[in-house]
Simulated scan of single mutants.
Amino acid sequence: MPAIRARRLFDGMDLLGERVVHVADGKITAVTEDGPADLDLGDVTLLPGLIDCHVHLVFDASTDPVGHLRESSDEEVLDRMRGEAARTLAAGVTTVRDLGDRGYLALRLAEKLGVTEGPEILASGPPITTTRGHCWFLGGEADGVEGVRAAVRERARQGAHVVKMMVTGGEMTPGTYSHLRQYGLAELRAAVEEAHAHGLPIAAHAHAGEGIADALAAGFDTIEHCSFMTEHAAAHDDTIIARLAASEVIVSLTAGMVPTDVPPPPGVAKRLPGIMASLRALYAEGVSFVIGSDAGIGPIKPHGVLPYGAQMLVGLGYAPLDVLRSITSRAARACRVADRKGRIMQGFDGDLVACGGDPLTDISVLQRPSAVFRMGRRVR
């Protein structure tokens, strides 16, 4: 039975001292304070494999991800996605929730991908959007109450793990706007009801304050972005934030950018000060959060960028312990895999990442993993 020793262990909830983690047949069989180890990782912190709650494996993180996708065949895109999955896993991200692809390619990749070739993929398929709405080119257009119900049923039939719905417009689609809503409450409630009837969680893409409020009222399980964008800036609404904090909803914060000479899109750049203020306000009010990096949408967000999101939130005043939970145990809850992911404890998957040093004193160590294990097998 393989046994892995580390100087410190973050078990998904708390930082502990030296531990030995025993793994067999891809599962953690025991965690002990002493005893022999087959592999001594030395002065590292061993954590559960990280979970990114919002990625787009079909996008290549280039300056024109939409154009490159449009010009590529499904097989070409799948081949590229394999490489992105490998990069994600090498970064210590062992589970991703893919919230928007073309033609259910992420589901196809999940079926073909070997355990050591990439993270576990929990996929939504094409996001549900209005005709010519945000990301319509991914193939998820649906209008009206019956239209969105049918769209949800199709995703359930295809085997999706989660439903994604574009409550507001977005920055990647000309003719749609982040500060404007795309659906009314009737359509949103119908989508939520249909998703829950099929046992599926449902995620709301929502930037504008009114869209965030609608997603909360409709009963979405997670609200993505939650940036409070207005037409020319971003300005959070304290009343909506208080309602978020009092609810069971989990907000998936879009955090993380790698250093690059390529600036953010102009529409995002001009709103960044307001978005950062919104992030501080959400945390101050105690809103339950995870991190969804939005990996793939541009050069500042390559696949595997999640550890930079952790550093960003700590830099905004978030407690490192809260941030670590948000990318492990709380993320597993948001993704509906909390019975086997996000913790280092008996019976859970052997997804592990080791980083030199202590992430509670220097969260940036997550950006330099020294070892990564997927279902007990070392991949880095």
Rank of each mutant, 00 (worst) to 15 (best):
V77N: 13
V77F: 10
V77T: 15
L78A: 12
L78E: 11
D79C: 07
D79P: 14
R80H: 15
R80D: 12
M81W: 05
R82L: 09
E84D: 11
A85I: 11
A85K: 08
T88I: 12
L89N: 05
A90I: 09
A90R: 12
A91D: 07
A91Y: 07
T94Q: 08
T95I: 05
T95Y: 03
T95K: 03
V96N: 02
R97V: 14
D98T: 13
L99G: 00
D101H: 01
D101V: 02
D101R: 00
R102Q: 11
R102T: 06
G103Y: 07
Y104I: 12
L105R: 01
L105N: 01
A106L: 08
L107M: 09
R108A: 15
A110D: 06
E111H: 08
K112T: 09
L113R: 04
T116Q: 08
T116K: 05
T116H: 06
E117G: 05
G118C: 04
G118M: 04
G118V: 01
P119F: 04
E120M: 09
I121V: 13
I121D: 00
L122D: 01
A123V: 14
P126W: 03
P127V: 10
I128D: 05
I128C: 12
T129N: 11
T129R: 04
T129C: 07
T130D: 06
T131R: 15
R132G: 12
G133H: 03
W136Q: 14
F137N: 04
L138V: 10
L138F: 08
E141M: 12
D143N: 09
D143Y: 06
D143C: 07
G144V: 09
V145W: 12
V145M: 15
G147W: 02
G147H: 03
V148C: 06
R149M: 14
A150D: 11
A151F: 02
A151N: 02
A151D: 03
V152Q: 00
E154N: 07
E154P: 02
A156H: 04
Q158L: 13
A160C: 13
A160K: 01
H161R: 09
H161C: 05
V162H: 00
V163A: 00
V163N: 00
V163M: 00
K164P: 01
M166P: 00
M166T: 00
T168A: 04
G169Q: 01
G169M: 02
G169R: 01
E171S: 14
E171T: 07
E171A: 14
M172A: 12
M172G: 04
P174V: 08
Y177A: 07
Y177C: 05
S178N: 08
S178A: 14
L180M: 12
R181H: 09
Y183P: 03
Y183W: 13
Y183L: 08
L185R: 12
L188W: 06
A190S: 15
A190K: 13
A190Q: 14
A190N: 12
A191R: 15
A191F: 08
V192C: 11
E193V: 15
E193G: 10
E193A: 10
E194Y: 11
E194I: 15
A195R: 04
A195W: 03
A195Y: 05
H196E: 11
H196T: 11
A197G: 14
A197P: 05
A197H: 08
H198C: 11
H198G: 05
